[in-house]
Design a protein around this nucleic acid. Structure first.
Lengths: 224, 224
DNA sequence: CGGAATCCTCTTCGATACTG
DNA sequence: CAGTATCGAAGAGGATTCCG
């Protein structure tokens, strides 16, 4: 059956797209970029994919060494998919796609889905720009009630879903709904407005100044 | 007819892929990233695309504001496609895809095509890494006899086909075949070996030391 | 002759139903 | 819960024809 379709070009870009350029493939990587997921979670995070296509993509990605199957530590014990180091090295591609796509965002289109993890990816990608400037810190995001650990530093940003619960002593806990996080990360909602309107808020403390500074870093404008 | 297919996700990555994620689309952008091209040139640079699909993609890209139609200055006068500023802002996506794809490169597969412009993109993308370190310079590449102007500096690298002929006082003129340029840019051929074997050579001068230093910058290892 | 629209075949996608 | 099987719909690929 299917000889894998290729562009047939000895070109670095075309070779990359031979592997991750098919429909849905990079979105599978996006889903796994916030941590290991079960098959069912992936289906839930990729509305419309169709179960056969997800199975095909996962099989291809496993064959390319981009994802691997693992087993979660007890008590979960369920079998999950996760990125390999080759898969994690796709992060800069995701980051740049996210940053470019941010310019196209407006208010959600009629019928668009929105998941907390997608907002986390948008935030992480926007922060990656700042991370190159040497900024660092650890944060907890609570996006529609789902917690993520965000760590910025050493020229990169890392953000994974925190099913284990607590972040060890984060510099700040930022909470809000997914749409607000996306809006700020896309530059469609100014830090000032996000903080004043209460779209985003700092949890567990009243430090509005720290929140505002964090939002400004998010949009890449140097705070005072 | 075609209601444009969308992932239906309020996500920065998915939104980007809604626009440039279809088959061939980013390769059209790659082709235009080394300068304006006629329809016929695009067909030649995208073997296998099929004329109807190229026409469709160009129409979509024009509708999205990523490419525009222009007319070349006399004496050429032909109508060409070129990137808009929105299109040029896709450069970081191309760069990261190229850098990731470089890790997958080996010797050309049986039947693979190879064009000078693709090698130029690989070189430019590899240099973008170094450009962030503050390096700068202007170079002329002669890849299988086709000249490109490469300018590195201010955190980015720019490389366009030089149909007008001469580069104004380049720091170095590097010549070789496309496969060698791709091999060095992908880290599959060491700078030392490329220079010693004559795969790449400096034209118009005998400055092997400068050539070696350039090759080392290309692969991102700090030269002595 | 360059720039496309048309036709036709083949592959892939997407949704549902089904099985280990 | 984790996938496989199936089938209509949409998209890709190639040749040919049309327009200027």
């Amino acid at each position: 059956m299917g000889e894998k379709r290729s562009y047939g070009q000895h070109c670095t870009v075309a070779r990359a797209l031979d592997v991750v350029g098919e429909r849905w493939t990079l979105l599978v990587v996006r889903e796994l970029s916030t941590g290991p997921k079960r098959y069912k979670d992936l289906l839930g995070g990729l509305p419309g994919i169709g179960t056969n296509l997800l199975a095909n993509r996962l099989k291809s990605l496993a064959g390319e060494g981009i994802v691997s199957r693992g087993t979660l530590p007890p008590p979960a014990g369920s079998s999950v998919y996760e990125l390999t180091s080759l898969g994690r090295s796709l992060e800069p591609v995701i980051v740049e796609l996210s940053r470019w796509g941010a310019g196209l965002m407006d208010t959600p289109r009629e019928g668009d889905d929105l998941r907390p993890g997608w907002a986390a990816v948008a935030v992480r990608s926007a922060m990656a720009r700042e991370a190159a400037g040497g900024c660092s810190g650890t944060y907890e995001l609570r996006i529609d009630g789902v917690a993520f650990h965000l760590r910025v530093g050493d020229g990169q940003a890392d953000c994974v879903e925190a099913w284990q619960g607590s972040t060890p002593a984060p510099d700040l806990v930022v909470a809000g709904d997914a749409e607000s996080f996306v809006a700020v990360a896309s530059g469609k909602l100014s830090p000032e407005e996000a903080v004043e309107s209460g779209a985003l808020w700092a949890e567990g403390q009243e430090d509005q100044a720290a929140l505002l500074a964090w939002c400004k870093r998010l949009v890449g404008r140097t705070a005072a």
